[in-house]
Amino acid sequence: MSDLSEIETPSRLRRMLDSDLFYAFRRSPVAMVSTLVALLLILSAVFAPLVATTNPFDPASLNLMNGFTPPMEPNAFTGESFLLGTDDQGRDVYSTILYGMRISLFVGVTAVLFAMVLGIVLGLLAGYVGGWTDTIIMRAADVQLTFPSILVAMLIFGIAKGITPIEYRDQMAIWVLILAIGLSDWVQFARVVRGATMVEKGKDYVAAAHLIGRPSLSIMLRHILPNVLSPVLVIATISLALAIIAEATLSFLGVGAPPTQPSLGTLIRIGQQFLFSGEWWILFFPACTLLVLALSVNLLGDWLRDALNPRLK
């Protein structure tokens, strides 16, 4: 029978290229440029070992004599020249940025995924079940919103650090960071999913599924969930930018990624010590990278929100 259906159904890719969303995408220069920039940054972070000139965390590749080399100028002692200069340890700033962005992106993406899953589950439950379940979940969310999220993240980070044994601390730091950012970020997912769930719940296709006798779990996952995902996609994109910034903030404050696995935030923290002694490049380039990364992801999120919301057009 498959030969019948194949004639008339376009492939998934064809459908995607035909969709209104893709059409809107091709018409928006902002979306195209920010996607291009974000993709470039993400790909260079993922393939950092191939793109970077050195592995800045391999002690064997370091030469202290190369310390504080300004960008594009040969070093006074070794004569080596670096695209974006070197830091106090003689590490190539260009390479540290690539490796740092890896950590930043990994933490950001994982934290957003964690927050998303948590938020979707709690939001679906609150919106679908209603009553006391809803009250408890949403009041917890309200309480959490009264604290600045960076404070919540620091609190979680502090507690987690306190209970992990000292020898695992550096290894665990990244995961604790993810947990801290994720836990401080689930609220907006939960709120949006709850609202959308309550709207979808009243629609007749849910009634039809009830009438068939589908269990609640199946109605939630198979019927409602796919219909509440488009606002989630928007929030996830915008949250990704925020999570990257939150990670940088925490690391800048010294409660994030350890110096052995520096993220962009850690690099900025290290760099700001040298800002006033003339070695501006150690701070400037990681900060610019953070800015461009967060901005491109954020613009993409903004565009996505407008494109998926026909009322704003």
Binding site: K203, A208, L211, P226
Partner: peptide
Amino acid sequence: QMIFQDPFSSLNPRM
């Protein structure tokens, strides 16, 4: 079984 009023909301748009 039941047939609903609004043919736009009685079918799951994602299925």
